[in-house]
Write a protein that binds this DNA or RNA. Structure first.
Length: 234
DNA sequence: GCGACAG
DNA sequence: ATCTTGTCGC
């Protein structure tokens, strides 16, 4: 199904689609070398249905900037816990198609398989584009875990009925942990290792941290240009 | 019925 | 996610 059609799905239909896609998920080691990595994120105004999507690509593991792409899209699918992909993936897909050179790996702001149906936004996007993905969320959605020690890089496994679905990682001392889980076409261990390599002094790993910065920037800029276009200062 | 609940 | 200044703590 083309993501442009997501907005016409009912929540029940979206859940049915997740159950259908989950059978295709591949959590296994990525054997091809990782030479480039990208971060993706979304931004929007409080009561607006316009989404600002952005992707930032870096050379890995140096993390030097290679390129960026953005897309401004409309959505009508509401935010529903567990169905985030249906709201944000269409916009991200547009930004993805604007990228000249696709990265070897993509980090999304949200869960991978640490989801009740293993279909977090990172997994969903990976299945859609066939690019290896990792989910790096700022808060927990699903899974049980013990609080990791308050020491940089301390980690604790996240489980769902005995199954390992993610890792709570203390990316920085005295900061709340981030929740890492593989999205598609990469292993749990590799996901955690890669994210650790992307931590550069902040709680949020560089790929999504920079993507967040980018989408906020274009959101503010777009708002200002519209104000001018409407001639509110005339 | 109650609590949880990515962005 | 976004609205927003100061403020507590390392």
């Amino acid at each position: 199904m083309d993501p442009s059609g997501y907005e016409h799905l009912s929540p029940a239909e979206a859940i049915a689609y997740q159950e259908e896609l989950r059978h295709k998920i591949q959590i296994q080691e990525l054997t091809t070398p990782i030479k480039t990595i990208a971060g993706a994120d979304i931004s929007f105004d409080k009561d607006s249905d316009i989404l600002y999507a952005g992707i930032v690509v870096f050379k890995y593991p140096e993390m030097t900037l290679i390129g960026t792409s953005t897309a401004i899209s409309h959505t009508s699918f509401p935010y529903i816990s567990g169905l985030l992909a249906f709201r944000e993936v269409p916009a991200l897909f547009n930004a993805w198609n604007n990228l000249y050179t696709k990265p070897d790996l993509l980090v999304l702001d949200g869960q991978g398989i640490a989801h009740e149906r293993r279909m977090g936004i990172a997994t969903h996007f990976g299945l859609l584009t066939n690019v290896p993905t990792i989910g790096s969320a700022k808060s927990r959605l699903y899974g049980k875990f013990e609080e990791p020690a308050d020491k940089a890089f301390a980690q604790s496994p996240m489980y769902d009925k005995g199954e390992l679905i993610g890792v709570a990682l203390r990316s920085k001392e005295h900061c709340n942990p981030i929740y890492i889980s593989p999205g598609h076409n990469i292993s749990m261990q590799q996901s955690v290792d890669v994210i650790k390599n992307c931590i550069r002094g902040y709680r949020i790993p560089e790929p999504t941290r920079q993507a967040h910065y980018l989408v906020n920037k274009i959101r503010i800029e777009n708002g200002e240009s519209k104000t001018k276009q409407l001639g509110l200062f005339d």
